[in-house]
Structures are given as C-alpha cells and as structure tokens.
Simulated scan of single mutants.
Amino acid sequence: MDGTLDHVMLRVENLDESLEWYQEHLDYEEKDRHDGDGFTIVYLGPEEMHEEGAMLELTHNEGESDLEVGDAWGHIAVRVPEGELEDYYDQLMDEGVDDYRDPESCGGRYAFVKDPDGHEVEIVQRDPEEGALWSLDHTMIRVEDADDALGFWTRKFEYEHAGRWESDTFANYFMKPEDAAPEAMSVELTYNYDGRSYDMGDAWGHLCVRVDDLGDDWDQLMVREADEYRDPESNDDMYAFTKDQDGHEIELLERDPDADSLFPF
C-alpha cells in the first residue's frame, strides 16, 4: 500500500473568513463542499491541480471557538517558482497578509505567513514543473522519536525518503510514496533533539492517504499493527482512520473517479 497524500485537514473558527483568505491570497478555488449536521467541510486547491496534487480541507464545526493550534502540528507549505519568493511574499504583504517570517529572516530560502486561525503557511521555491502556483508541497508534523516516525511511514504505508535536512538541534525528514509524481505532497517529519513533547491541540485535524481499496488496505494496516482507531465498518465503509505513534490522525479514503462528489457520502 503506497497511496498518495490526498488532503490535509485544518479546523477553522470562521469558515467564510478562512475561505476568503485562501481564495484571495493563494488563488484557491472551492473544489467541493459537504454540509453535515452541525459542521461544514470544504475542499480547496489551485485551479490547475495535478491529479496527484493534494487538497486543503477546511472544517468548521458550529459553535466551536478558541481553537488551539498546538505545537505537534507545524505547517502546510505552498509552492512558488524558483527565484520569485520575494516577489510573491511582497505581493502577500501588499494584500494585507500579516508579516510573520520574511524571506530575509529565513536566509532567502523560504518564508512564512499565517492564516486567520494562526495556521502557519510556509512558502517554498520549486521548479514550475513540480506543481501549480500555490499548490501544496508538504505538511509538517512534529514527532518525538525520529526512528519510530520513519518506521511508521516506511512499514505501514510503504513511503520512502524524498529528502532530509539535519542541523545541530533538529532534523527534517520528507516522506512520500515510491515513484510519486513531483506534484504530490509529502509529509515532513520534524524531530527536535532536545526530547521535548508536544500538544496536539484541536485546530489540527489530519492527513489523508488516498488508497485503491479501502477494505484491503485497512486489513494490510492491521497486519502491520497500525492503530485501529476508526475502522471502515464504523464509518459505513466510506473511510477509516488510524493514528501514528504520536497520535496524529491519518485518514484512509477511496475515491470513485466517476462520482459526482469528492466526498464518499
């Protein structure tokens, strides 16, 4: 099982405000929406999304406020063309986005802004052939044991290293399926050497892996001793959830390419 990363879910307090932010500043468009009993889910992404590109899922629960981002969740990263980081950062500043970490403070290699709920959005430079402008490049989560985290993604999901960066105090490991398209999103595992622990918070939702056969792939996860958090049967065989060693939720979802909706409801 080596399913590609389908989306990353973040919870937001004001859905209209969040939608406006991503649509105005990142040129995202609404791909699909589901209005449930007391909640709304919206899929977003660039207009020219690659078939293996990942979407952003914004979830709003009625009456929910004071969401805590926590520090186990790091950020999402979006792509701009190589050599144009400062231009696009200046564009965001001109549009009124908060100045969080500018390119100069990040050595000219990347930059960070925040969305209305305080979710960090990294801006990274990529070859234009590696994904549409503002497309999702990676999602960063923090882990308490690098060996356990790497083993989880390697053994459970058959992911492989797509890159790594190690410093004196921390290391970043990028994981994605073998032979994944350059446009596909990766998961960045950040390990700090000081042995700290993390708070998950409630504004961070989950990662989603798109699989070929939900039942078969779930059974394979169980053979590999993954956490049986929410099995397919408990979700009417539409999706399922496991958790990694740190408690990060990972959804499994099987999509019907001919369906009218992106949602399995």
Results as ranks from 00 to 15, higher is better:
171 A>G: 09
201 G>A: 12
128 P>K: 07
128 P>H: 06
148 D>A: 12
145 D>Y: 03
148 D>P: 01
198 Y>H: 02
126 R>Q: 12
147 D>Q: 14
147 D>F: 04
153 W>Q: 04
146 A>D: 09
142 R>K: 15
131 G>C: 03
113 V>K: 04
143 V>Y: 05
183 E>L: 07
125 Q>D: 02
193 Y>S: 09
184 A>I: 03
123 I>D: 00
166 E>C: 02
128 P>S: 09
167 S>C: 09
125 Q>A: 08
154 T>W: 08
115 D>W: 00
134 W>M: 11
132 A>Q: 01
167 S>G: 13
174 F>D: 03
201 G>R: 10
143 V>W: 06
112 F>C: 05
121 V>A: 08
176 K>F: 00
139 T>L: 10
175 M>G: 02
183 E>S: 15
148 D>H: 13
178 E>F: 11
138 H>N: 11
129 E>H: 02
180 A>H: 00
151 G>R: 04
121 V>S: 07
187 V>R: 01
130 E>R: 05
137 D>W: 00
162 A>N: 08
140 M>C: 14
169 T>Y: 10
120 E>W: 11
184 A>T: 08
142 R>H: 14
131 G>S: 04
114 K>T: 15
188 E>M: 12
193 Y>P: 07
171 A>M: 13
113 V>M: 08
169 T>M: 09
191 Y>C: 07
119 H>E: 04
167 S>L: 10
128 P>F: 10
151 G>K: 05
171 A>H: 02
159 Y>T: 02
125 Q>T: 11
190 T>Y: 01
126 R>K: 10
114 K>W: 00
121 V>W: 02
110 Y>F: 15
172 N>E: 13
172 N>C: 11
181 A>K: 11
109 R>V: 15
137 D>T: 09
188 E>T: 00
124 V>W: 01
184 A>D: 05
109 R>I: 14
176 K>Q: 14
187 V>C: 03
138 H>A: 06
194 D>H: 08
158 E>T: 06
